[in-house]
Write a protein that binds this DNA or RNA. Sequence first.
DNA 1: ACGCGGCACTTTCATTTTGGAAGTATGACC
DNA 2: GGTCATACTTCCAAAATGAAAGTGCCGCGT
Lengths: 93, 93
Amino acid sequence: MSELAAALGIVGPRWALLIVEQLLDGPQRYGDLQRDLGMGTNMLATRLRELEAAGVLYRLPLRHNTRAYALTDRGLALRETIVALRGWGAGST
Amino acid sequence: MSELAAALGIVGPRWALLIVEQLLDGPQRYGDLQRDLGMGTNMLATRLRELEAAGVLYRLPLRHNTRAYALTDRGLALRETIVALRGWGAGST
DNA sequence: ACGCGGCACTTTCATTTTGGAAGTATGACC
DNA sequence: GGTCATACTTCCAAAATGAAAGTGCCGCGT
């Protein structure tokens, strides 16, 4: 399996990269992610679980029953990829 | 819609980026792509149609009933993204 | 002229993924 | 004790993906 295929196995599923993009601005709570991205809550929960298992992000406990999601170093390392893709998408006109 | 989302609308579907990666080495025929990528022929046909419609690649007629698929400038511009993702995938250990 | 084989797909149908809507759990606060 | 906010889970329909087999076109050999 190529390295590109391995990467896509993690950030390939729909919404995965968009979640990471949101978290590049800093840790966010579940509800904020959902509202900002406009995605269904079931998909968000699934993706967060997968990305956490893959070591891309982790849960950061806040007060009472709330928590935030933050990128690990491995997650932050996706910034270059996201910038490149964003630049490519901007050039479609 | 963000620019990242726009980009993912084109290269987000499964196999799309892997097809582009293969074509970075030069034009390839349908059968070669299928064998190299190990993907089903129906999906390959669908992706090639979509990527052609998006201006990422084009059909290059060869002898008789054969043709090759080649990247447009827009398709070649994905090289940076692919290199970045490949590098990220390599760092998973 | 006729059949054979390679190539580029299409079609059909099962499986997986995605999406929408509603429901559940937990704890703070009044 | 009841209400509210937050973070999910569950259930079901719709869409995407995948495996297998079939179709159409041409060139080549006989």
